[in-house]
Amino acid sequence: MKIKVYMSFPADKVTKPVTYHLIKDFDLRINILNADVSLNKEGRLVADFEGDEANIREGLGFLEREGIRYKLFNKSIIWQEDKCVHCGACTAVCPSGALQMDKHDWSLTFDKEKCYVCELCVKACPLKVMSV
């Protein structure tokens, strides 16, 4: 089973090796998609959790006990490719690198795995072909 999780750390928890515990104690495969963590500031981490359902549940329980807020991604970005003109305006705001221009034929490419559904592209797309 694989889920995508958005975590936000209070400033005092930033120094805690959370991913280490998730991997070591709950046997989860963690793939960090995006991180914005610095000392004495609230941190933000987006990651895929892969493992047994029970382990994932326990891992999320661990986050709760540690006072780390999280939310699961149950939405995804829908790209109406046939209506897209491949202008690239969405790539100006995409923080995950999920939306990129192919440097060879200058088509827009969308890597769903990298996307953490921040929805910035939905507003930035001039043709309104991005939705959730």
Binding site: V85, H86, C87, G88, A89, A92, M101, K103, W106, S107
Partner: peptide, 23 residues
């Protein structure tokens, strides 16, 4: 190329006109 150097910083670039459609 995807980046330009501006005031000593590497800044990501994005097009707004479609080169694919122009081609």
């Amino acid at each position: 190329s995807g980046y330009v150097e501006l005031m000593g910083k590497k800044i990501p670039t994005a097009p707004l006109s479609s080169l694919r459609k122009a081609r």
